[in-house]
Write a protein that binds this DNA or RNA. Sequence first.
DNA 1: CTTATATTGAAAATGCATTCTCAATAGCAA
DNA 2: TTGCTATTGAGAATGCATTTTCAATATAAG
Lengths: 123, 123
Amino acid sequence: MKRKTRQREIIKHVFQSEKRPLNPLEILSLAQGILTGLSLATVYRAIKELVEEEWLITVEVPGLSLYYEINHHHHHHHFYCYSCSKVYEVDGCVPVEALTPKGFLLESHEIILSGQCSSCMHG
Amino acid sequence: MKRKTRQREIIKHVFQSEKRPLNPLEILSLAQGILTGLSLATVYRAIKELVEEEWLITVEVPGLSLYYEINHHHHHHHFYCYSCSKVYEVDGCVPVEALTPKGFLLESHEIILSGQCSSCMHG
DNA sequence: CTTATATTGAAAATGCATTCTCAATAGCAA
DNA sequence: TTGCTATTGAGAATGCATTTTCAATATAAG
């Protein structure tokens, strides 16, 4: 049966405290801050399980490797910061249906804003 | 000096007749329809040059390999068809600035619609 | 505490898109 | 046409994210 392990708990904890989408290497370095010696393979194994149990969902940002975020079950988009390379959740949406070409069926959409996050702008 | 070759001409021709973003394998198979024996390495070499001379621009669709499209110098977005996997250009835009989080600086944005294209829906 | 086995770390292996190597070929200037 | 060399095709090599392997370790049931 499935066991509760320190490494998986730490990985979940990292998502809860960062409150933003993370990629495998970000997860690794944040989690290694708590548990030195954690391996990347374990991060990947944990991600896979957490996505399967729908605790995490995948975030695909064009040109970047996969990011993952806690599954909050609400529609939102993302902001990518060119300076620190972090991805943030962005609430709200805009009426993109208007863009759908005639005869096409719109099933989903993705909006990725890019620029500088507030930490990089100010602080 | 730079030489005009059959393979490069054909690759440009393929973009002009398809009128949609193409990825390296699509370019290869379309171009091989005209010149059997064209190699993938040549497709990559041509893409690289055409992007350098700004005849082509890169299109990054989340989760997919790179696509390329003729540089029309106008702002637009993309539609990805789940059925045939083709990417299409979509004209127009929507006011995404409204989504920018407080304190963040918006520099660019990307909108990717997905669903079924008209060929897959009807005919 | 003991035991069965799920999980881990480390490194090797995989899958893939892309680039490089190199001998053969083909533009193009003379 | 000739000769120089940019370009090509084919396959090997690279770079990368991700997965697998396997012996060592740790969880949790009894």
